[in-house]
Every structure is written in structure tokens, then in C-alpha cells.
Nucleic acid binder design. Sequence first.
DNA 1: AAACAACCGGATGAATTTCCTCCACTTGTA
DNA 2: TACAAGTGGAGGAAATTCATCCGGTTGTTT
Lengths: 184, 184
Amino acid sequence: MRSDAAKRREALVREARRLFAAHGSDVALESIADAAGVGIATLYRNFDSRAALADEVASAILSDMQRAAAAALETIGSTPETAWLTYVHRLVELDLGALSAALADFVTSEMSGTVREAQEITLDGVEKLLAAAKSSGLVRPDLGALEFVLAIGMITRPHPEAIRAAAPNLVPQLVSIVLAGMRP
Amino acid sequence: MRSDAAKRREALVREARRLFAAHGSDVALESIADAAGVGIATLYRNFDSRAALADEVASAILSDMQRAAAAALETIGSTPETAWLTYVHRLVELDLGALSAALADFVTSEMSGTVREAQEITLDGVEKLLAAAKSSGLVRPDLGALEFVLAIGMITRPHPEAIRAAAPNLVPQLVSIVLAGMRP
DNA sequence: AAACAACCGGATGAATTTCCTCCACTTGTA
DNA sequence: TACAAGTGGAGGAAATTCATCCGGTTGTTT
């Protein structure tokens, strides 16, 4: 693959991720190509279908999540509180909510084996971290990994501009509430 | 207005509410008419535009919210804990999340004066109830009425079928977490 | 620097979707 | 029974999205 082609592919995935988050899974493929600064043909050349693109985006997110969990697992032994808070905030920054909503359709029906596998690995990592957090007394024991991730997803769902303006501090406040509510 | 026409109008609002919640604010108007068992012309006869229909739906929801707050205000003096929990659960049942997302566009730009007014009255009611809950020690003092309502909205956003299947108990669990996190 | 293969953009027509009006027909009510 | 109120859904217009095709451009290799 030529190096310029690789750059364009990268840009496509990056913009797809941004636009899926902002406008849902049914954005016009053309708008993704535009945002990436390439023609629509380039998109089709790289991804046979919308699902193929969604797959790639999902993989990128899952990879980010795994990295966050791995980093937290390294420090949760020595500084549990800090590690846990950092991890949650990093997860919040991933815009999980926007993307999970957008990708949920594919996650269900058209998800490739690769992605399904990555998803399981990711959840395993969360599980491990959660277990450590529980034994440090930071999290109540009845909270499952899936439920935890979904909870973070819920509070990071995108809001319309009007709401962001009326309650500019909403997400941090929700994080604070949910973190408090997750304690034993 | 003829009585059968009134019944059809009612059905239209009811189904619009249901479909806005299920599929967002851009459902085909024709699908709303279908669901209500009427022709598309009947919808247009009753509502000039999508916004007019959304207005009516928004009013219905706000009215439900006011009723719930009023009921809670009556009993929160004698049985604060029960009144508060009942109120929150009733709010959850209103499917606020699904609808607020769907109606947010209109709430911002095209909302009629009537609805804007109803919205303020509703928030005033929440404010009053919240004040009572705070002085009963059920809610932390730094939680605003708007943030509270939005929080309830967040956790009642609709999930895809796959998620509902994988975490069937998600919403009650989130309610429990958020309620705990809102305590002082 | 030349030559080739890889790669590109965006115009384009087909296909789908949604809108919303029009009018011949049906139904409630006085 | 008669009439005004009300109805349904066909259908043309408009907008949106899809996905291909090909003349032209650009990176890379020698």
C-alpha cells in the first residue's frame, strides 16, 4: 500500500469515528469522505460497505479501551483511588456514549468475528480492573463489567447544543454522581 | 369538533409520542399516521407541521411531569423517603430520555411560547420538590433541578435490543446507582 | 528523471425516501 | 334523511443517498 493511501485511510477512520459519534450510524458516507478530505471513491475503495467502516471504528475504540484498562491495572495496586478515577475519566473522554449508540446496530447484527473477539477481550480487562477496584473498596460488589461500561456510555451520550448551554457542567456532575453511587 | 375526529387526534398524539421515543424526531409522519390507524391526510389536517405535532407531544409530557411532582409534593412532608423514591420511579417510567432526545431539536429552535412556558412551570415544580428532598437529607444540596431532570433523562435513553438482552436489569441498576450518588 | 503502477476525485444516473396536496367518498349528528 | 364534517391514500415533486466509472494525478522504483 502506498504511503499516501495509508494516510487517507487513516483520515477516513478518524473522521468516521467523529461523525458516527456526532450524527449516528447513518451519516452519509459522502460526508465522511468530505470530512477526511478525500473523494467518495476512496472511501469505497477502502471499505466495501458501511459495516466494514463501522468495524474498523469499533476496533479502534475497543483498542483505546483496552489501553486505558491496562494502564490502570498497573497502578491500581499502589494507588487505587487515583488509578480508578483516572481510568473512569479516560473512559469518559473516549466519547463512548456517542459511539456505542451509533455502533450498536452493527455490534448486534453485522459485527465481524474480529470485533466480537476484541469486545470480549476488552470486557475481560474491565472485569479485572473492576475486581481490583472492588477489593480496594472503591466499587460495590454487585456491579458487573458490562453494566459499568454501559453506565459510562449512558452519561456520555451527546446532548444537543441547547442543553450543553443550559447545563454546561452536566457531564462532570454526572460522573461525580455515578462514581459516588458506585461506591459500596 | 366531531367526537370521532377527537379520538383520531388523540390517537395521533399518543402514537407520535411512542414513535418519537422509539425512533427519534425524524420518524416518517406517515408511519405515525399508520400507527394511529388513520390516513396521512388526517395527520396534516390536525397538525400543520412536524413541529406542531412535537409541540403537542412535549406538552403532554410536561403535563405528566407536573402531575408527578405535584403528587410527590403532597406526601413528601409526611413520608419523605417514599415520596421521593416514588417520584423518581414515576419519572423513569415516563421514558423521558427517549423523548427528550427526540424533542430536543424543537425544544431549542421551534418551540412555541406555550411549551416554553410549560417547561418553566415544570422545572419550578421540580425545584420545589428537590428543595424538600434536600431538607429531608435525601439529596445533596448542589444538585440543580435541570441537572436532576437531565440525569433521569440520560439513564432512560433507549437501548438497542441487543443491549437490553445482555443487561436486562440495566435501568433499575442505573436508577439505584444514581439515587445513591445523589445522596449527600 | 523517466516510466509505470497505484491511486485519486467527483460527476452521474439509479434508487429510495419523504413530503404534502387533492378530491371522490364515508360517517356522525341534528 | 340530509348535510356538513371528516376521511383515506394515490401520486407527482423534491431531496437524499448510493455506488460506479474513467480521465487524470501522484508516489515509487530504478
